Simulated assay, not measured.
Amino acid sequence: MIAYYEELDDEERDRLRNVIQVLYRQTFLLERKFDKRTGRMAVSGEYRTGSRHFEFLKEYFAVAGITLQENMHMGLIYIQGETLWGEKLPRLATIYLLVLKLLYDEQMAAVSSSSHVVVTMGMVNGKAGEFHVLSSLPSPTEMRKTIALLKKYQIIEPMDVLEELDENTRFIIYPSIHAVLLGDDIRELLGTFSEEEYGGEEAIIQSTLEDMPE
């Protein structure tokens, strides 16, 4: 394994090192991301590197008891293991994350031919309202801050300018939404996420892949 790494040139080593760090940080690599310059989905360089060195990475993570897998249908390379810890998220980010997963699953169930889906801010807040988990509409500042956080972890990608955020602002939900939630019933979980019980607190979302179709 070490010999394989040492045979790479410096540039490729840097790419591989970056991929390892990304996998440890967010547990997944996306095959395609939205490119605002072209308005299209583009293949990720990180994913190409991960795919190119997949067998090496698989052995590397196995040393730490972590399993590396690839889901070609979803366009994800991801890690699983009991040693991985979840990230603590603010309450609004947790609510949005659960709602986004629900919207993603609903659209994919409608025989979607793509691994990503597009929703609007109005759809997200509307779905949250259906479960009565928000006592009032968050302020534009709160929504922008939350969207920026979820974008940071490559869960979503805004298609429109966040400074002009309104109910028509569009977002791409990446298949990585699977990588940050357990396989619980999202509707049931949202149903227990009442304003009275969780007001002002933070929640932990487990960074572990649920079972997905190959």
Rank of each mutant, 00 (worst) to 15 (best):
Y96D: 02
S115V: 05
S112I: 08
L89S: 04
P140I: 01
S114A: 14
T83D: 12
E55V: 09
N71A: 15
I66M: 07
L100C: 08
E59G: 03
D105M: 07
H132M: 15
G126L: 08
M121Y: 04
Y96F: 12
M121D: 01
A62M: 06
E59A: 07
E59K: 04
E87W: 13
H73S: 14
A93E: 12
F54M: 11
T146I: 01
M108H: 06
Y153E: 09
V99Q: 01
G75S: 12
V118H: 06
F61L: 11
I77C: 03
L100S: 11
M72W: 15
V117S: 03
S139V: 10
R144Y: 07
F56K: 03
G75P: 02
E130G: 13
T120E: 01
F56C: 01
G126I: 00
V118Y: 08
V119C: 00
L97E: 03
Y104G: 03
S136R: 15
L57W: 04
E106M: 13
Y60I: 08
G86L: 10
K88M: 14
W85G: 14
M121G: 02
K151V: 09
L89M: 13
M121T: 06
L137Q: 12
L84N: 06
S115H: 03
P90D: 12
T146K: 04
M72K: 15
E55W: 05
V99F: 06
A93S: 03
H116A: 06
T141R: 13
G126Y: 05
L57G: 02
V63D: 09
K145S: 06
P140Y: 02
L134T: 00
E87Q: 11
L137A: 15
L92P: 05
A109Y: 08
S136K: 15
E70F: 11
N71V: 11
T146S: 00
A93P: 06
L102G: 00
Y60P: 00
S112W: 10
S139N: 11
G81E: 03
E55F: 05
E59S: 04
S112V: 09
F61T: 08
S136T: 13
Y153C: 06
T83V: 09
K151Q: 14
A64H: 12
G75E: 01
F54T: 05
G86N: 03
T67E: 11
S112G: 09
K101Q: 05
V117C: 08
G126K: 00
A93R: 01
L150C: 09
A110C: 00
S112H: 03
L89Q: 10
L149G: 02
K127V: 12
T120G: 01
A109R: 03
K152I: 03
G65Y: 08
F131W: 07
L68K: 07
Q80E: 15
V111Q: 08
E70A: 10
L149Y: 12
G75L: 04
L103F: 01
K88H: 15
Y153R: 04
L100E: 02
L89P: 01
S115T: 06
A128G: 09
G81C: 01
T94E: 13
S115N: 06
L137M: 15
A62V: 09
H53T: 07
V124M: 08
L150D: 05
G126W: 00
E106T: 13
I77P: 00
S135M: 15
L102P: 00
E142H: 05
Q107G: 08
L97C: 06
M123E: 15
Y60W: 13
K58F: 04
P140D: 02
Y104V: 10
V124H: 01
T83H: 04
E142Y: 11
T146E: 05
